[in-house]
Amino acid sequence: MSVLSDKNLRGYPMKPYDMVREGLIVFGVMLTIILVLAAVWGFPGKNYGPLTIKEVATKAPVAFLKRTVSYFSGTSRLQTYGPPYTHNDNHAQHIGPFCPNCWVGVIYPLNAKVDFVMQPLQQIAALDPNVATALNTYQNASAKQQTEWNNAYTSALNKAQVTHGRVVLPAGDYGPVPVLMNGMLTFARTGLLEAALTFNTNPNMAPYETNYTRPLLYLGGPIMNTVAGHFDEKGGEWGMSHIAGPYPGAWWLWPYTFLYQIPAIGNSPNGDLIAFLIFLVMLLIAVLAPMIPGLNRIPYVIPVYKIIWRDWYAKYPSGIPSNASRKRV
């Protein structure tokens, strides 16, 4: 035996034991339980595939156009997100001067207007002369004119009608913006926008690029929030700790996601940072519980150990074997 075991077990009665046999039996039982769970319920996530841009552009074209024109006009929240995408440090979560996100800085610079809209539009323009002409008209217009067209188009989307998949706007002066946005919509409906966004991330890496930041962020904001709300998955609804559908998810994160249910934290612009710091303290308390007076007495105050070792205490009420009867091996 090891020096420690030898010292710790001196004088304690021993019993025969086969660790590997016990391990194999428990493994067999666990494997059977897991096989049954997998066979009966399958993988819960299989019913809820990824939300594709094609799906959104086809089923909710107005929502797609609203999001796309917000990138195009530079009004989306993503364009002032702060690090790691933009330089708006004032939007980074912070508690006083404590701002870890600012310290890391802009390591994945993102210009949503260019990266999400202008680059794909240039690719669409190569395939569609109407879009090429509209793009040329837009780029040659003054900044003031561009803003007026963007604003008029954005407002008109609130009154848009969808007829047989076509988005019909009320009459107005939107300049070339409708042609550009319809170009994006048509392209998105082919299912190629995700591919273009990924390709444009680094064209030199085209066949190998696996950085899906752009296609994943594209549908972020109102569109994904709406879908998440449908599945009760928003932060105020225990967020990441459950999954879509009536299945358990990461329930072990409940102590963390619980913090978001407290309005003062859940509604705070710095909620993630506050929640994590509180969680860190909770975790430290749990890890250091054996050293914290009071907490380290709980096992004695709530004597679950008497149940765990009931056979032992029946024989040795004090907990210590009464003689050194153990046969040494």
């Binding site: 019993k15 025969p16 009931r310 056979d311």
Partner: peptide, 9 residues
């Protein structure tokens, strides 16, 4: 091949 007798729970 052996374990203390109190490991029985």
């Amino acid at each position: 091949t052996e374990m203390p007798a109190y490991v029985n729970s």
